[in-house]
Design a protein around this nucleic acid. Sequence first.
DNA 1: CTGAAAGCGCTTACAG
DNA 2: CTGAAAGCGCTTACAG
Lengths: 397, 397
Amino acid sequence: MSSDLGFTGADGTAARSAAGQGNSTDQPPTIYDVARVAGLSIASVSRVLNGQRNPRQETRERVLRAVAELGFVPDSAARALSARLKEVVGVVVRRPRWTDSTMFADEDENLQFPDMINRGMEIVAQQHGFDLLIRSVDLDEPDAGRRIFALARKSDGLILHDRILSPEELDRLSRQIPVVTLAGLPTATTANVHGDNDAGMRALARHLIFDHGYRTLSYLAGHDGSPDSLSRGHALADEASAAGVTLLTGEEWRGSYQAAGGARAIERLIAAGASLPRAIVCANDQSAIGVLHALAQHGIAVPGEVAVTGFDDMPVARHLRPQLTSVRQSIQDLGATAFETVYSMINRSPAGIDSARGRDIALPTLLIRRESCGCGSRSVSILSEPPAATPDSAHPE
Amino acid sequence: MSSDLGFTGADGTAARSAAGQGNSTDQPPTIYDVARVAGLSIASVSRVLNGQRNPRQETRERVLRAVAELGFVPDSAARALSARLKEVVGVVVRRPRWTDSTMFADEDENLQFPDMINRGMEIVAQQHGFDLLIRSVDLDEPDAGRRIFALARKSDGLILHDRILSPEELDRLSRQIPVVTLAGLPTATTANVHGDNDAGMRALARHLIFDHGYRTLSYLAGHDGSPDSLSRGHALADEASAAGVTLLTGEEWRGSYQAAGGARAIERLIAAGASLPRAIVCANDQSAIGVLHALAQHGIAVPGEVAVTGFDDMPVARHLRPQLTSVRQSIQDLGATAFETVYSMINRSPAGIDSARGRDIALPTLLIRRESCGCGSRSVSILSEPPAATPDSAHPE
DNA sequence: CTGAAAGCGCTTACAG
DNA sequence: CTGAAAGCGCTTACAG
């Protein structure tokens, strides 16, 4: 049991003298060293290690003993080359531009979103013996495309956080290697994973409209062209028009998914003398933080005068004053599911890859009512069930 | 210029029909495809691509054209195997145990520290065409050692955030592959990178003792055996004894580097009826957050009754009430330097590796005076220069 | 300057 | 069940 963990028997010298002269750098042992020590062929060593075609008990033991003695670990490059499996999934994150973060030094928080997703991936990846190769790419980079293709050649599959490739590039890439996006929409050859924006936003919209009775809303969007921002916006617009409620949108309501963008939008509106809606629905929590900040600066009471909501329910949301009403996504699940999806595509079965391709996987979202919408202490107008201050209300499926 | 970026000419069909039948999955082109299209040998293609032994202008052009047409990117596994360079550095992070984070849901913030270091690495890695393979390891994992050796076989070098390996394992590993630690102390075969704990803590200690005149201090340590925590503690003890000031330490002052640990320590002390020192010096900012929290719970004024300081100067430090006095480390530099160090060890020159081994690289730290030490608005007792509320005072070199 | 060939360290049909 | 051999896709001496 103890020697079974490997590396234990390694007195070192014996193994090392066999491996070579190495003074400052010992060459790690190869499968040939193991075969020699075990008195077997490298094929047998390989079979034992990979559990193929069950070898004789004695063979197995000799191999295992030699492996432990030498501390042998197969070289991944050789393994990858011959088995056509690198056990690596590449992850592409868009590097945050430092342009929008002067005002909120903690904007680093924003890193949390992709980082938390990656964390979810990593946990699952590990269970499958995979590692993640995370590469951040700058949108303005001239050869972002090349860098992603290069990453692809280091990986068995790719997960893309953002839209960086042109549709043509994405198409070519996803023909060569399994690709899963978190960026919004599947294509014929890629799968996509996303939070159920539609259901989450509809639940939130109904809560604001019917439970609180707000008649004027605005949508503070995320950055241009973000599919998440778009689908949230659509769902909200749909609910608003169905209920005959006014919804303000447009350029002046464009944010950046960052606190600074939300704050700036509010500052401009106030400077322009615009009158604010009864509730501001933000594309994400970060934007809402900026909005809360700007409103506080101008002494506008939240939720008394203007209600504010977020989306994502990041950990920080419950610590804001007032506590932020938001729509929870299980961020780690997003990552875990994205990984499971590429993994199923990678795993040999060309059937698997074809069944996953083109799929759009929506993960459940949950409306979390806190104070900033008007619930709790200073709730304003409740038409249906009493809104709870605790996270318990589910969205309609 | 436009076609120089690659991938542009790829009408696809021509290349693909050459590459194979592939319906759902196209095989990426290999160097053989490029050679065929260019009418040259694979050796020439390789030379052009790697800038070896300058080939004729025409040869170069033909290769480049074929590469662009096919969208060729070399397979990393094949490259790694034959060139003995993977262009990957493995990074081992200790996975945070979820035991200590019940009370502070935002303890995820703690992830920021290793994440920010990794970010610093990544930026530099990218400049050298390297990627980072980040693997988190659980201390309790029975075969943490094996997982790290396995990571080593996927990498050209390793950066270890924490102490996980036994000294023997670390020794064997670092003989096989360049290893840089961030964990505290170099060995004969590894290099270490760390913030200059000693200078930073001494500057802080002198500030508290001489500028503020505090005569009783305590050191709220980090988790057991942390070299950073130890050297900070030593420096503080040294300054305290030199100045004839009382320093409380010991088991009751042990924290965990996390907010919860700091809060718990204070709670216990108060519950035990212990009287608090004039200033509590915490091993890091997170601990200080917990301490501030606990003191506030008991209505103890900071810095009026008890001063509190941190270490690290995380972004959040300036947003606390009172703003936290701390010792700044450039966290990204820590990562960048760690990478530069492994990189220099990897880079062929056995001279390079031997000169880096055994080195202990200290990065400068900077005392940041804010409110929690007693500076600024409610400063208490100033013996020397007026402490500024802004980050400007340097530590003694 | 260029090409043919060996070799990197594995896995996996193919024989026996 | 096991071994000899081919092959994965590159790089790099070695000839020419």
